[in-house]
Design a protein around this nucleic acid. Structure first.
Lengths: 347, 347
DNA sequence: CTGAAAGCGCTAACAG
DNA sequence: CTGTTAGCGCTTTCAG
């Protein structure tokens, strides 16, 4: 059925010849423009089939300046990615919305500094109409890069200061507010020595959650704060540090569920009863984790999947409507999604 | 520093004007051709910088027919992907080799039938020089699609029959041989009632491993075989089925480590001692699993990461050297990598 | 070593 | 409704 077998892949021209019409007509037919006679359209469809014709996107996007693909860039050691259910939810939402828009999501990983130039070239090379970017550290060059090359982009999580360009569009959860609510809950339970395990403090979400903690506990001692790394293991270690420093700790706000589950393990290992001796509140509400821990985790809920959808939707506005920018004056407003406390058994 | 701020992204022409040379010279400089005077090259480099110029890949690949990007297509519900360490290793190897070749890996997921046409268009659209494809089921349309559009591709795992096109290049482990070795080991231990938990039998690897089992146990009863789905849960369930059917089972060959860990759990739950009552051998040798089970898992080792590298290398040959094909006569030979039994405590 | 000119395959006015 | 004519931004002979 393939028919070609000469050297090159069939072009519009080949199809046109075979169907006995002009290139433009074929182009119209292929792009589903209505102004093509049905019989002709059918003839074209056949030719396309017989030749196995697939439009050359490079040529097409050279003129249309679009290619219906958007990059999803994840700056994260791959191994963390494949272990953290957080990304799974995010990606699911993104995928859903992107596909809905008819755009092909293409996933790019950045694992080491060497990757930046290559990925940058890909992003700037017109392969994609826009980019969705994640997990940015304070020193991540990506925000500057996309801004510099004028690629429409939406960030997952507020880009940390340092990437400090004014007008980035992002979607973020109300990390600070959520943290406040968590800590207030602990306070309302009568807890007096409330510690916190933070995420890596070069990430905005980690900083914001710590700030929320501080908002409520204005005079909390630095002794009560330990920096984790958003992994289970890291959570356990930070918990150990905290316990060693403050044996009288009676509550802890942990900046992620994964870390909280590690903290729980450490607590149990040391014979602390939860929540009787130490109450713990997590962050994320990843049900696969929060409902599986012993006891089930009280935690701050954020709708991660929906945040993903939102990101894709914002990007779409940015790539389709030219409404804004030209002079950067009308950056599409970012959105901060609400969080809420989900009380289970750990606090 | 960005300087442009008029409407469009800078082109070769802009750079040329600014550097006071012709487009051709700029093109040469940018592509690192040696025949450009150093002083001129420097001037060009500067102009590029000042303008924030990034070559338009669409234009470039329209003429070169290359774009230094290769697709990695994963046909798998995303959630399984993000949970199975198998993919992690595979991707790591692929990434390493691809990057080494200067190619940008782009990851595409196929989760539902609707995705095929869109992904197909992307693949055929000249966005990538080739594709690495995974996890193909017997009825997967992808092999036919890439063949039809003449896109160089290498498969991870032998495409199951049914995708039956003669000349696909693939990298696969010696599943059948590995399974044989596993079962022979069980036999040598004096086991008499040896069952097997298979993977989904629409995947070649699952079929091959079952065939290996049968090679050794020519007259094994179907009662001794239960089909799993390569998940932990599925492994546990299949184990339960087997145990109900054959209470006197004294060994089981499980077609993946993840399933084996589920089987172990079920076995323990029923009070069977391992390996005393029932010996179990897995497949994959994912150390994060195999070394963590209780008892540690005897299993068939395959070097997954290396298989990934191999795939990328084969694809490279297929995309760079034109050596082969034109008439399809010289398909690049596939490679089957060896496996070996790693004996730990479970058998 | 550098420039001029000719396309790569496609879409988008503009005429019929 | 359909064909003609220009390019999109880049690489690549082919001449200087």
């Amino acid at each position: 059925m393939t028919e070609r077998s000469n050297g090159h892949r069939p072009t519009l021209e080949d199809v046109a010849r075979r169907a006995g019409v002009s290139k433009s007509t074929v182009s119209r037919a292929i792009n589903g423009e209505p102004k093509v006679r049905a019989s002709v359209a059918e003839r074209i469809r056949q030719a396309v089939d017989e030749l196995g014709y697939v439009p050359n996107q490079a040529a097409r996007s050279l003129v249309t300046r679009r290619n219906n693909a958007v990059a999803v860039v994840v700056t994260e050691p791959q191994n963390r990615l494949f272990v953290d259910p957080y990304f799974d939810s995010h990606l699911r939402g993104i995928r859903q919305e992107l596909v809905h828009q008819g755009a092909q999501p293409v996933l790019l990983f950045i694992e080491e500094p060497d990757d930046y130039p290559r990925v940058g070239n890909f992003l700037g090379g017109g392969h994609v109409d826009g980019a969705l970017l994640f997990s940015l550290r304070t020193d991540d060059p990506l925000p500057a890069m996309v801004e510099h090359m004028g690629l429409p982009a939406v960030f997952g999580g507020r880009p940390a200061i340092g990437s400090g360009h004014r007008s980035h569009t992002y979607v973020d959860a109300d990390n600070r507010g959520g943290a406040r609510e968590a800590v207030r809950h602990l306070v309302s339970l009568g807890r007096r020595r409330i510690g916190t395990i933070t995420g890596p403090l070069n990430q905005a979400s980690a900083i914001d959650r710590l700030d929320g903690y501080r908002d409520v506990l204005l005079d909390a001692s630095p002794q009560l704060m330990a920096e984790g790394d958003f992994t289970l293991q890291g959570g356990a270690e930070a918990m150990a540090v905290l316990l060693d420093r403050c044996p009288d700790l009676d509550a802890v706000f942990v900046a992620s569920d994964l870390m909280a589950s590690g903290a729980l393990r450490e607590l149990r290992g040391r014979g602390r009863r939860i929540p009787d001796d130490v109450a713990v509140v997590g962050f994320d509400d990843l049900t696969t984790i929060a409902e599986a821990t012993e006891p089930p985790l009280t935690t701050v809920h954020q709708d991660i999947e929906d945040m993903g959808r939102l990101m894709a939707r914002l990007l779409f506005k940015r790539t389709s409507g030219e409404l804004e920018s030209r002079d950067g004056s009308h950056p599409l407003s970012s959105v901060v999604t609400p969080t809420r406390l989900v009380v289970r058994k750990s606090a």
